[in-house]
Design a protein around this nucleic acid. Sequence first.
DNA 1: CGGATTTCTTAAGATAGTTTAAGGTTATCC
DNA 2: GGATAACCTTAAACTATCTTAAGAAATCCG
Lengths: 191, 191
Amino acid sequence: MHPLIAHFQTYLPLSAEEMELITGRASQRKVKRRQLILREGFTCKHYSFVVRGCFRMYAIDEKGTEHNVQFAAEGDWIADIGSFHAGKPSGFCIEAIEPSDILQIEQQDLYFLYTNIPKLDRIFKVIIENKFIELQNRVLQNISSTAQQRYLHFLEQYPHLANRLPNTQIASYLGITPEFLSKIRKDLAGQ
Amino acid sequence: MHPLIAHFQTYLPLSAEEMELITGRASQRKVKRRQLILREGFTCKHYSFVVRGCFRMYAIDEKGTEHNVQFAAEGDWIADIGSFHAGKPSGFCIEAIEPSDILQIEQQDLYFLYTNIPKLDRIFKVIIENKFIELQNRVLQNISSTAQQRYLHFLEQYPHLANRLPNTQIASYLGITPEFLSKIRKDLAGQ
DNA sequence: CGGATTTCTTAAGATAGTTTAAGGTTATCC
DNA sequence: GGATAACCTTAAACTATCTTAAGAAATCCG
């Protein structure tokens, strides 16, 4: 079955016509490791659904340091939704961390689908609600926990990511330097 | 006009019947300063829309320290949506910072409205998308900026809140101690 | 397979933020 | 209107995290 249909059906059942409308507007794409699917300064034109592989969305500060705001692996959506909806230049880059396969929906196609399949408003409402809850927990971690606690929490919450990602990317996500993460890991090992 | 109708109409127009359905399921409530409308350990039963006043949602850590994850003032919604949808005990408290008026919708009523007014799925999708974007920017701040930068950013982004809130609440939101915020303010003043 | 690049680690010195304690100020509530 | 509680500030000692630098290990890609 088409991966997008399977994905949406985990939320609500779809009719045959609805499935056809959806698959007709999603285009498949292969992405190489390190390839960018969104570049800072450009408008985010697609919602991307990860079929295989792994991505990160990051911002670059004045010093040139990259800060990971989000990862996306199989079954996740990734986009700069601020830029996408406003049609304005993004402050983020989205990069494949592994060779990946994605399905992309363009803005006008997504809006078409929202209009013709009201169910999708509901589905995406639920998807983003869940992302919001996750993000809120991350904020709570950030304002209330030490880096070590945040790292342990990350390992628990995203074991599948912790395995695949270089520590340097995890450090960036946690808001610490790779050197300090290395120290944390040493401290944890030495118990 | 009913504040909720005015609020929803900033997103999409509503018919007279839709308005009636909505207003019939929202109940008005006055809340005193310091009163809790959600207590940790209890399930969040309502979406609350702030008509007048100001709220904070916070978690309490092992040491008893409170950590503000969100503020809500006039025109904002506040709820622990994780607890609300899962029907499980919340890890948060929601407290009025000022004497406030709110409109509350219970879970089954909100679900009824979602089902009978599909437009509301769209409206709440957009509302939460906007909250998500805000929250993502906050995460970026947290992982990439110093406390002073975060404070300045807060003043810029939420001037209406910065005026009304005690610094101690702002410090909690920024993830720093009130003492350190005091030092930051002193440093900024002395320029 | 092997050179190039990225990633991981260590450690010393520097900076950002916390803790504790105390005093002064302002707001709240009866 | 006055007692009480909340809020704000200061400063010194402490701890968490960053910076810099450099070498070792792992991974990628041709």
